[in-house]
Amino acid sequence: MSTQKTLLERRYATLGMALIAPTVLIFCAVIVYPLFSAIYLSFYSVFTPTLEGEWVGLSNYSELLQTGRFWNALGNTLIWTIGSLFLQIILGIGIALVLHQNIWFRSLARSLILFPYFISTVVAVLVWKWLFNDLYGILNHLLMKVGIIEFPMDFLGTMPNAMISVILVGAWKYFPFVVIAVLARLQSIPESLYEAAKIDGAGPVARFFDVTLPQLRDVLVVIIMLRAIWDFKEFDMIYLLTGGGPLDDTQTLPLLVYQEAFALNDMGMASAYAVVMMLIMLVFMLVYIRRTKDDGGV
């Protein structure tokens, strides 16, 4: 093997460069530039409407670490992300397993299941706010009728109800993604593996744990990583549902960034929060890359 590049190799290399150049340019414009300007802004104290301010060095960061708001938001973000992700995965796998069976309404159910995922967040939140409403909401009405509660419950205005409601709506909205991804994988597991397991004496439960789950492992790693990142930075649903309230009990990091930037008009501080968020997500990314590199999968 000579290290000298042949003419053909050089021609391929040039063509390759030419083909990826537009992507790289656009990537720089919409990702790299905003990223660096956020980092840049986080060292300034900036008044949002004028975008003018002065260099303050690391003081945004030290303030961030000292005030309770950041830690509170981080805690909320973790609770929300873990809670909703957990439900999404359990619900997603469960329903995917059901839909994988040969039931007659399978194709109809498969399209219906996508409904929450495709519906616009604003519409979904409006509907859920109706359902949750303490005066005329159907949820309270039903719960009272069945006799579980005596007085209407405040689903969104008190804790821990608000956080639970946010987590439930999040799980409802995003579990279809898990269903679709898991279902696609389930369909590609060869039937003969199950047959071999049957002959080897494995019952339904053993078949799930010994055949299905190991086969789902790779896709689950991807789903969990993607959903964790997406849930971590979820903004619109939570903002519309509770606005971060009551007080700031459901205020997650993205809401905090928004509040700093556009309510408190401190773009510098908001950038600092955003940069820290990015660093945390970088950890997810590194774990993900490690996981997928460890073992090329099956």
Partner: peptide, 21 residues
Amino acid sequence: LAPGERDIAMVFQSYALYPHM
């Protein structure tokens, strides 16, 4: 009787080996 209860062993045309084991 279920396959596991028939006291048989089978070699599949497509091998059907458990890929993760």
